[in-house]
Design a protein around this nucleic acid. Sequence first.
DNA 1: TCCGCTAATGTAGACGTCTACATTTTCGCG
DNA 2: CGCGAAAATGTAGACGTCTACATTAGCGGA
Lengths: 337, 337
Amino acid sequence: MAQRSTFRRKGRATIIDVGRVAGVSDATVSRALNRPETVSQTTRERIHAAIAETGYVPNPLAKAMVSGRTHTVGALVPTLDHAIFSKFLHALETELSAQSYNLVVAVTEGDNTLELEKAKKLLSMGVEGLIVSGLSHNGELLELAERAAVSLVATSYYEPGASLPTIGYDNEVAAKLALAHLTGLGHRNIAVIHGPVSSNDRTQSRLKGLHDAGNDIDLHFIQTSLDYRGGGEALLQWDRSMTAILCLSDVLAMGALFKLQADGIQVPHDVSLMGFDNMDPSEFLTPPLTSLKLPIEDMGKATAKAVCDHLQSGEPIASIELHTQLAVRDSTAPVGK
Amino acid sequence: MAQRSTFRRKGRATIIDVGRVAGVSDATVSRALNRPETVSQTTRERIHAAIAETGYVPNPLAKAMVSGRTHTVGALVPTLDHAIFSKFLHALETELSAQSYNLVVAVTEGDNTLELEKAKKLLSMGVEGLIVSGLSHNGELLELAERAAVSLVATSYYEPGASLPTIGYDNEVAAKLALAHLTGLGHRNIAVIHGPVSSNDRTQSRLKGLHDAGNDIDLHFIQTSLDYRGGGEALLQWDRSMTAILCLSDVLAMGALFKLQADGIQVPHDVSLMGFDNMDPSEFLTPPLTSLKLPIEDMGKATAKAVCDHLQSGEPIASIELHTQLAVRDSTAPVGK
DNA sequence: TCCGCTAATGTAGACGTCTACATTTTCGCG
DNA sequence: CGCGAAAATGTAGACGTCTACATTAGCGGA
């Protein structure tokens, strides 16, 4: 803990202090650290001793400043407290970190104003790329990112015509796929339980995909809060004339299933139940839940790769479509059963 | 999109370019931006026009370098793909962001070597504080953080004697509390389902809390994988002589419950089932799951506050104990029933 | 022994912003 | 009309690291 004033200016030793102790210039120290082969054996040893003596730690800010790189990518997500986003971020972080990038996370609560505000913070800390969720954003966001020369990419979406690259899946098609499964089983009168529409463009797209279902299909849309409770409460608007329930999220489906179980209503005997997301527990439920698999982990990996490639090559980011897939399990059955 | 070579050096306009266009020095521009009241009205206007013209965006790195601050805090968590940690991070981010700090997240997969590696990356990008989960770490970590003059705080734990400040709860006490609930209902022969012990010191502590349960209590420890499947599979080692099952995580409890439901075993009639964590769905299960509430959100908030206070005041971080609490619901019943 | 080449090290200035201090301008008031 | 204080602006150098270029040292060969 010796406080050698020789090599301490404002608390921390600098590369110059190390040089002074080792009897060389700062440039030599820098070289010893970054390209050791250009420094003689003996000098290198003296320098390392000096580093140990001074407790020198490179100043990351000075480094970043001179290189102009922070190796940092920012992600804006509506929430962390939802398996979809945390799974996505997990995959994203893993891949980014494999390529030596750091991930800064900011939560937007689905609020475009807050999103803009947090985007500013991320930009003003020097992120090199910015990942957002969905397509509806404050108009200023794009402009902001462009001014900062930071490239933007949207996820949870695939829409090649959009004003920014998108990496994700087609929510409309996915919703159609889910519905087709139920109609294929003969269901014609179907409850659709979904979360709030405002400030959730994924839900909006999914609903859009359902709207032109066809004349002989009766859809009853039930909006509720996007949580387990909401799934249960939505059932108040359900009656047995609707032979199937399509939930636009597995959380809602589980909420509904638990309520049905509590009420003694048999799935799929009394009603078919289908989710959307394919979350971890879904396949273990009783009965195992039919759902729609979203390629969340792939999306995380692909997004990380795209951003890293872009930062390396300078090429613009291309949109990538990932595919959704039915996971047919026991919670859905033919209408007659 | 005019490419005025006058004010472009390496692609981006600098504060000096703005000054040149506005006909003032860089210092005046800097002041106009940071302390506008010290600059005359007319000059300010000219400067803002110049900023618009040049598309100037302050370089965050230079700023950080001169101020020596990044306003960034790092968090190392075992995984993001688990509600506990993502809930924690959500609360953490919310509070940090309220105090204008950014959050960098790194995933350790519960591996101390990887943790150390990622800690290095976080330090070398300039985090001002580092939040880790649990107490078992690579020894180098503490040393590293100290050298970088970055303060460390451990969460999910409360242990005032530890070598670093801890903000969390007492896992041993919590486990005892859970067990006491079951023994209080008369259960004497209890299965304890838990996840992998290695590299999970929270599980270790919880088990430690159970070990001196008392002579008349028979505990059957069943280790399994920490996921829904694991909870179900663990039941292979359970038989009806064990009148209660204590799962050291709600994920395991849900996995077990779903399997019990599938097998037609009634909870709590045939067996009492208790979880640990109190995750979102638990109260909606059929039957609602008795669990042990962990103060995860409080922990996130408290940790953020502690770190921010520390960074503001320079005072060392003090350990904080948060309390756990039983959430008694219908999945547990007296042994006779 | 000296030339010339290579290896090793030093010098100087750049990166973009901030700020203490110096200087200039402004303006009120006698 | 000029003095002096206050307001406005400029100058210079710091922050810590990197690197192109300049310089010195070292060494083998003739």
